[in-house]
Amino acid sequence: MSEYVPDERTVKSEYILEVKNLKKYFPADRGLFGRVKHFVHAVDDVTFEIKHGESLGLVGESGCGKTTTGKVIVALEVPTDGEIILDGIGIEEYAVDGFKEYHRKVQMIFQDPYESLNPRMTVFDIIAEPLNIHGIGNLKEREEKVAELLQEVGLTPPSSFMWRYPHELSGGQRQRVAIARALVLNPTFVVADEPTSMLDVSVRTGVMELMMKLREIHNMSYLYITHDLAVARYMCERIAVMYLGKIVELAETEELLKNPIHPYTKALLTAVPVPDPEYKKGEPDIMGSVSKPVDPPPRCRFYDRCPIRTERCAKEDHPPLKEVAPDHFVSCYEVSE
């Protein structure tokens, strides 16, 4: 089935994806009557690029805006402000065909496989649907393709999974169906939102190897959202750390893990659990516990919880991302100046 490879790509830009000053605000009020007065600043002026064939890891606090960033990129949410450019072409230009072409190139693996799979479709229908929509292959070819993917994500034998419904699958099995569906068209860019969060090491390794293999063959790129830094280490060339709607640190993976600079990144690395019941982990150096993204005051977003804050951090607006070492960007007054 040579049609599966939608290559013949004429690369238009150095980057597969450019995100410029992206903002997404949600109304936070009950909002039944009258004007909305308060907003959740889910994504608040975020800028990054991803090269062809590159994977960028996106990590950060639960609720900091990772999924929202992903949804805006795949055109499921309309940005409040900012630009999304896919391979040199602004996302708005894809609106002409209702984003059909865009969704052939760009896919999202959703965070919650209990909510994202259509309960009335069989595993086969779910995975083959994108092939259907784009008129690729005949029935037999589609069955072969689906079986091949099921095998590769460890749902074996494929014949025993193909005709089941999502409610007849375990959490991690659903997650793998969602992955197979997103990859079936060989997209050029995938937003993978915690794609392996329910998988044990052994099964997860197989899935990550598949994602890496497809990346090699098709020169794909990923925005890989994860809480698992060991996974990010394996999958991603660079990692961006997000806190309350802002990217606070961005660097090459090994550099970030060895030499974290932002106080939030440091706290995050200290809190990584260690698989040893006798090991006593350090306390992450972070204050308070609840972060509040509703109408954040104009100062460093990490101020309330920061162990090294000074008066300046409260007086000035959120610090800009600055290059503190080659390709290592940090947004913090105390460490980046």
């Binding site: 460890g154 074996t156 052994s202 390794t205 060991a230 280490r233 394996y234 893990l257 990584v272």
Partner: peptide, 24 residues
């Protein structure tokens, strides 16, 4: 299960799998 975990420190190890297929 216990003999190999991916980690964020030390050498980037080869990832671990249990050979063969998950049982039917």
């Amino acid at each position: 299960l216990m003999s190999s975990f991916p980690s964020i420190t030390g050498e980037k190890k080869k990832l671990f799998t249990i050979p063969g297929e998950p049982p039917n």
